[in-house]
């Protein structure tokens, strides 16, 4: 049914295995955030830090541009601050997702969430955040740092894979899977080039859908368009105008 999806899940599991030993720097940044939070302070980019950490990790953090060493003082850079914020945000949103939607136990949630935070990029996390309705706190009651999707309320994010019907004319996308088991329909669709991995271009939606696949122009109706699941090439968000009625898709820089 949702062919192609299982592939992605497998991929996720493979990466997860590697995650535990990965990136002590990320762990360090998260720890910093949590410590300040517990003291009731906000972590700031210019804070002077007193750290007791292995030399190797420190050097790597400086190489990555997260920490800065001037004379004897060690401080957090702007990009280090943002990285920490994003990690915490990812972690806590992942916890929400796992606990609220997927019904994981508390232990499992903690374990999984620390893996997910390295896995998902900003756009994916914003999608999760939108999906969950921009939660303010994690299951443990800690504050989730706001993302762009929370502050700019008029921006809407789409799921990563959407039916063709969700695209806007002029958009390019990649076919991910076909939502049908009807063999003659599958054969028909693939003969026009609707195969997983194929790039397509939506020309128009009205009066019927017109799609360009390589050099083939195809006309199709809503019924067929709903079966074709695609991943838009560019991450696109919808901006709702003040009247809250009309959509305007805007390209986000990634």
């Amino acid at each position: 049914m949702v062919s192609g999806l299982s592939d992605n899940l497998r991929k996720i599991h493979r990466i997860k295995g590697r995650c535990e030993t990965q990136n002590e720097v990320d762990e360090l940044l998260e720890k910093l955030w949590s410590e300040y939070e517990e003291r009731g302070e906000d972590l700031r980019p210019d804070h002077t830090l007193k750290l007791d950490i292995p030399e190797k990790v420190l050097k790597k953090a400086i190489d990555l541009g997260y920490l800065e060493e001037k004379e004897d003082t060690l401080s957090l850079t702007q990009s280090g601050y943002e990285r920490a914020r994003q990690l915490i945000r990812s972690h806590r949103l992942a916890e929400r997702l796992l606990a609220d939607i997927l019904d994981f136990s508390e232990d499992e949630t903690e374990n999984e969430a620390c893996r997910y935070e390295h896995l998902l990029d900003e756009y994916a996390i914003d999608s999760v955040c939108s999906l969950l309705g921009h939660p303010r706190t994690c299951p443990h009651g800690k504050k989730i740092p706001e993302g762009r999707c929370c502050t700019e309320v008029e921006i809407r994010y789409r799921p990563l894979v959407v039916p063709l019907t969700e695209l806007t004319p002029g958009e390019e996308a990649e076919v991910k899977y076909l939502g049908t088991v009807d063999s003659s329909r599958l054969s028909h669709l693939t003969s026009f080039g609707f195969t997983p991995g194929q790039k397509i271009y939506l020309v128009r939606k009205r009066p019927a859908y017109v799609v360009k696949i390589d050099e083939t122009m195809v006309g199709l109706d809503d019924e067929i368009a709903r079966l074709i699941f695609v991943k838009p090439t560019r991450n696109i968000v919808a901006k709702v105008s003040r009247r809250n009625r009309f959509f305007r898709w805007k390209k986000s820089e990634r």
Binding site: M217, V218, L220
Partner: peptide
């Protein structure tokens, strides 16, 4: 369902 090629 409607699915047809549009030649150039």
């Amino acid at each position: 369902a409607f699915l047809a090629e549009l030649p150039p």
